[in-house]
């Protein structure tokens, strides 16, 4: 009961506050962008040379404003947004009107979620384990070698790294497809062939993201471990004659992994931001390009939907991490 009152309840309240404030701020900020979705639509047609005579343009602007619900005050729009949100409706996309926003997200999100969940988990696990070991056994030859490799990989811009991977493994040695999410003409069925095809197309993007992602986790974990190793309790454990493995896993890595777990939770929330560069380089489907297009075109409803989902997901993950922290950290449990 005390746990609920002193630990859980404040965190739940904090969660609700963050969600409310976050969504409200995004609602206000995106309306301060110097971009008008109505004008972006007209500009898109005009850019390609389609005929919209000036007299029709004015009529079109008026029609679009009425349909998009941009006629009222910002307060009216804000309350209308919350009303729709509680009904689970994000409204129609403005740029792609009248397609419902949720349809666009449902189309794009599975690709990004599949790719990022896989690469984030695997790179976290790989980087954290290797970083932890390399940090503790930093004097060994393999740890020094791995450290040098990571030091070379880590600063490479992802765009360059991805392009190099693409040229090597899809063009010079054509092991993987040059791009796309599935092969041309592939029907979507729950079959082994379809799954293999999806994995083949995801392989190179995943490998590129995984390698660079692992390098980041590796370096962070290695530094944390080295820092923890110099703590008094570790020195005391060594002086006490405890086995090296016991010190490494029960004293050092167990303590060092806590911030990594928090960071993992935050990373998973970024799924909603998508992996824009990956999507561009590998012509891979996903939510990043949807969000990018929405921002450029002032598609308020799409931006609000994606950021709302992102805020709720990240906040929820942080809440979950907070709630399970006592399992890992005796200090929290004790307090």
């Amino acid at each position: 009961m005390l746990f609920l009152k002193k630990y859980m309840l404040p965190r739940v309240l904090q969660f609700l506050t963050v969600v409310f404030v976050g969504i409200t701020l995004v609602f206000i900020v995106i309306r301060m962008l110097p971009v008008d979705p109505v004008k972006q639509i007209i500009n898109t047609f005009a850019m390609f040379g389609a005929t919209i005579d000036p007299a029709s343009t004015e009529l079109l602007i008026q029609t679009l404003r009425e349909m998009f619900g941009l006629e009222g005050t910002i307060f009216e729009q804000y309350f209308a947004f919350w009303g729709r949100l509680f009904r689970g409706d994000f409204g129609p996309s403005l740029f792609l009107f009248p397609v419902p926003v949720i349809d666009l997200i449902v189309t794009a999100l599975p690709w990004t979620a599949g790719l990022l969940l896989l690469t984030t988990f695997i790179s976290w696990l790989f980087g954290t384990i290797m970083g932890g070991l390399a940090g503790y056994f930093h004097k060994s030859l393999w740890a020094k070698f791995l450290d040098r490799v990571v030091m070379v990989l880590r600063p490479i811009p992802f765009y360059v790294f991805a392009l190099v991977m693409l040229i090597i493994f899809a063009y010079l040695i054509p092991l993987f497809p040059l791009g796309g999410g599935i092969a041309v003409g592939t029907p979507i069925t729950f079959s082994w062939r379809f799954i293999v095809d999806v994995i083949r197309h995801a392989a190179l993007p995943a490998l590129s993201m995984g390698i660079l992602g692992s390098a980041v986790w590796f370096q962070t974990m290695r530094l944390i471990v080295q820092s923890v190793t110099s703590e008094d309790f570790v020195v005391y454990a060594k002086a006490g004659g405890l086995k090296k493995n016991t010190i490494a896993f029960k004293y050092v890595i167990r303590n060092a992994i806590l911030p990594q777990i928090t960071a993992l939770g935050l990373s998973l929330g970024q799924i909603f931001s998508g992996a824009l560069i990956t999507e561009i380089v590998f012509a891979y489907p996903g939510i990043g390009s949807l969000l990018n297009a929405a921002i450029i075109n002032g598609d308020y409803n799409v931006i609000m939907a994606i950021t709302t989902l992102s805020i709720v997901t990240i906040s929820t993950l942080i809440l979950i991490v907070d709630l399970i922290y006592p399992l890992f950290d005796p200090q929290v449990r004790f307090k």
């Binding site: 896989l118 690469t119 695997i122 790179s123 790989f126 092991l175 993987f176 092969a183 041309v184 003409g185 592939t186 029907p187 062939r193 379809f194 293999v196 095809d197 994995i199 083949r200 995801a202 392989a203 190179l204 995943a206 490998l207 995984g210 390698i211």
Partner: peptide, 16 residues
């Protein structure tokens, strides 16, 4: 993670 090297690569394309 990069296991996909070992997945079949020369199979017939999946098509209708």
């Amino acid at each position: 993670a990069g296991g996909l090297f070992f997945l079949p690569r020369d199979q017939e394309p999946i098509v209708e």
